[in-house]
Each structure stands twice: as C-alpha cells, then as structure tokens.
Design a protein around this nucleic acid. Sequence first.
DNA 1: CGTTAATTATTGGGTATCCAATACATTTAA
DNA 2: TTAAATGTATTGGATACCCAATAATTAACG
Lengths: 119, 119
Amino acid sequence: MPKGNYDICPPECCDMRGMLSFLILWLLSKKPMYGQELAKEIGKRRGTKPNPGTIYPALKELKKRGLIRSKKEGRATNYYITEKGRKGIQTACEYFCKAFGEIFRERMHISARKAEQIH
Amino acid sequence: MPKGNYDICPPECCDMRGMLSFLILWLLSKKPMYGQELAKEIGKRRGTKPNPGTIYPALKELKKRGLIRSKKEGRATNYYITEKGRKGIQTACEYFCKAFGEIFRERMHISARKAEQIH
DNA sequence: CGTTAATTATTGGGTATCCAATACATTTAA
DNA sequence: TTAAATGTATTGGATACCCAATAATTAACG
C-alpha cells in the first residue's frame, strides 16, 4: 500500500491533522471495525493513514473512557461504539457542523458562483 | 470576558481543538486582523478562545513561512495574508471540504429528514 | 494625570496526535 | 510446511496546539 495512493492530498500550508478521536467515533457510529480498517477509512478521507502508534493508543483511550468497547475475533480486534459513545458523537457532530459550517457554506457558495459563470 | 459566553460549547467526548493555523489563514483571507481580534473570532466559532500563548506563536510561525505578514499600528499588530497564504488557504479549504464533507452532508441529510417528519 | 483596559509577546509545562520502529500473533498464500 | 501478509500493540521521540502566568506597551476612561 503506497502512501500516496489516495484521491486526496493534504495541503502544504498548514497541518490539517487532528481530531482523531472524533473521526474514530464517527466511523464506528456507522459500523464496527478493527484497528487497521479504521486507519484505512481515515486514510481514504484524509489522504493520510494514521500509524499504529497513533491509532491504537487512541482506541485504548476511547475504551478507557467508555465510549467504545472491543472484542478480539481471530487476529482482529473489532471495536464497537457504546451508547455513551453514540450520544457523544452526536453532540460532537452537531458541534463540528456549527464550528466549521461556515467554511463549507462558503465553499458551496463559490461552487454555485462558478456554475453560474459558465452559463 | 467570561469564558463561557458563547453560543456554542465544545463536546466532552473528544478533543475538537486543532487546525489553528488553518483557521487563522481562513479568517485572515477575509480581512486583516490583530492578534486578539483573531482569537475572538475563533472563539465565536469554536466556543473557546485561544490563549495568547497559543495564538502568537502560531502567528509567528505563519509569518516565518511567508503565509502572512504583520504591521504594528499603535498598540495593535495587524496581520495580513500574503499571496502565498491566499493560495495555500484556497487549497486547504478545498482539502477540508473533501476530507470532512461527508460529516456535513450526513448532518444536512438528517436535518432534512427531520423536517420531512414534521409534515 | 492616574488608573484601568486592551494588546503584544514570551515562557514553561501539558496534551492529543503523530511518525517510525519493533515484536508478537494470526491468517493467508505458495 | 514455510513464507508472506495482515493485524495488534507498545515505545520513544517529535510536533502542533493548548493553558496559565508574566511583563511591557499603548489606548481609553474618569
């Protein structure tokens, strides 16, 4: 798996990483996953896949706080979101959309503007 | 200025801070601002205002990388985005909307769903 | 004019996230 | 059966961001 094999590439000007726990909870709210599956899904969206040294301590912490639970199944350890985690991520998504919503709406506005100009 | 005097409050389940440089460049791409003005604007959106120990080193670094420039005007130091910064933030906003867009669209879908149910 | 408020900037210590390396376990492929 | 692939988990060092405290400067207020 080459590092750069994504449709998306992070910008050079500023660090766009972070909010790892948020992304993990959000993905797990969709379906249970094992560690590397999560890392791969994050990589698909962010263009950079978190290393084991990043993902596993984060999962460990989320488990410690009761937001997820895990179950070893063969060589994989599958992670499941708890009810507490589900409530938490709902609130977090609302917050995210409020805090960063303007960037999105601005972008959609620009896109709509460009579409107009083509007419 | 009380800390909690915002319309928005960060969630408890996970850390939603970060991407400070991105936010700074984005705000400066709208209009020049001085340090505490930037901090205030970030606070309005994120519900937490970055401390001087956070904002000024970040501004210093952005300046060092040629993405912004500054000019002391009285007690204020106003910060301006450079052309390099403007190009950078454009790319970064595109990236941001791609990387996190799904969270938004999901949220808007849920909102639309709820509106339907009311009918 | 003196006092208060606002702004700047730094320092020291902390934290979440990050990478790279390493070792071990399990599954899959040859 | 062996080798390769995949997944787990930890450790050590690094980085961006973070807070709180501090000191200096400038502006605003009474």
